[in-house]
Design a protein around this nucleic acid. Structure first.
Lengths: 241, 241
DNA sequence: TACTTGCTGTGGTTGGACCACATGACTTAC
DNA sequence: GTAAGTCATGTGGTCCAACCACAGCAAGTA
């Protein structure tokens, strides 16, 4: 077993046994190295991995906020992994879109009207309204960033941590392909106007507790953008049976 | 920007531009350190992260198989991240089961009868047949390992790389909870017999091109095991609308 | 009381050294 | 000429010692 894996194993055991709860602090790197009889270098390699996984967060300095703390951020972890694999072109955009539709329709159908993330979603829509008339690159990117966050917030309302994490991991990839596809759109402002209308309708349906309608609207919304950009014809996504 | 992030950024750019295709070799750690003007330690931290993400694979020695090669293994990446977060108890088993049902019913409905992974699935079922009569811990674990792999192979038959990666990432978690739940089962051998029958029926439906039936059988199969272990009543998973 | 100063402990980074390993070229013995 | 053994080379794996930047805290000072 490689040296840094000793550290990973130890941390995982501590996490599983509850001796290292979320919010607590890991021993200092030098102490951990001594306790596990490995070099500080190996401890640091393990911490880097845990950091990339969204399990810990490191901060320099002293005091209660410094050191390496246990966090719980599955989304960023999966997100960077996914982003890297998209970079290798082994994860086609078409598959990302299909997966979005799958996850988001499911979530929309099960979103709980009172969920806190819906308030966030509403706030994001308001911010998008203020950006809708702008055509320059910067504002378009800002709009799409809010758009992606809206969809993640919507998915979170279903209350499934795993689905939320997966949607969060798709956020960067979604924002990326959405941005690249704007080049294919005839006119951004008209598309933006349509998107805003669809967003409002989706949120309204969810708030009204009409999951079926919300799911259908979400599917239309996502596929509509993809088709408008001239990339139609991905596998059907009607629910099985 | 921290030193190892310089390396990560560089690698990601090379991946995105195609100058570092899957299967190629990264420059040696010492050379990369010199080229990017960082220490070898920082290069190694970045490579550790990429390795954990399933983007590269390191091997010692010399020759064409040695060095750090670019791979494409999204599943293990997401898998270890997921496993760690399950360890922190921030990803409830119930949510994993619900997500499984979501992904697997979708995949079963869209599985292509001729897909190569279905042959693997069939082979796995045969192996499981040989283990079905054994009651000892070792063989039960082996059975469950094959079981999890069967489900991943089945999901791959849908041909969506993102869904396949997500199912692959769930494999370790699935195997883990399935193993822990065996303690709640009245008699393993009868459960194993039922599971084997259901597996065969699912595979037959998929091979016959009957996606709707396959999806329904998969949902029953997964939820049945969960319920048998005395953990019933997770949110309904009938498709929206 | 309020400010300044320095101490302490944290992660961040570096260079160097050595090890284990796998390969391939070279040397040697037959 | 062939076969076996040997060594050089280059790779990642590990460790160490040192230094830096940073944030907080405590002691000293006005």
């Amino acid at each position: 077993m490689r040296s840094h894996q000793v550290v990973l194993t130890w941390v995982e055991e501590q996490l599983a046994s509850g001796e290292l709860p979320v919010g607590s602090r890991l021993p200092a790197e030098r102490m951990l190295a001594e306790r596990l009889a490995v070099s500080r270098t190996s401890v640091r390699e393990a911490i880097r991995i845990l950091e990339a996984m969204g399990v810990v967060r490191s901060a320099v300095g002293s005091g209660p906020e410094a050191g390496t703390m246990v966090t719980a951020d599955p989304a960023t972890a999966l997100g960077s992994a996914l982003r890297l694999h998209v970079a290798t072109s082994h994860l086609p955009v078409q598959d990302i879109v299909a997966t979005r539709v799958l996850l988001e329709t499911w979530a929309a159908a099960r979103a709980r009207p009172g969920a806190p993330s819906l308030a966030l979603a509403a706030a994001l829509l308001q911010e998008m309204d203020e950006l809708a008339d702008h055509e320059d690159r910067r504002d378009i990117d800002a709009f799409l960033s809010l758009d992606a966050r809206f969809h993640v917030a919507l998915a979170e309302a279903a209350g499934n941590a795993v689905v939320s994490a997966m949607m969060g991991s798709l956020r960067a990839a979604i924002q990326d392909y959405a941005g690249r596809l704007t080049a294919n759109l005839p006119q951004w402002s008209s598309t933006a106007a349509r998107l805003r209308g669809e967003h409002a309708a989706i949120l309204a349906a969810v708030n009204a507790g009409d999951g079926g309608t919300a799911a259908a609207l979400v599917a239309e919304h996502i596929e509509g953008y993809y088709h408008d950009a001239g990339l139609g014809g991905f596998p059907s996504d009607d629910p099985g049976s």
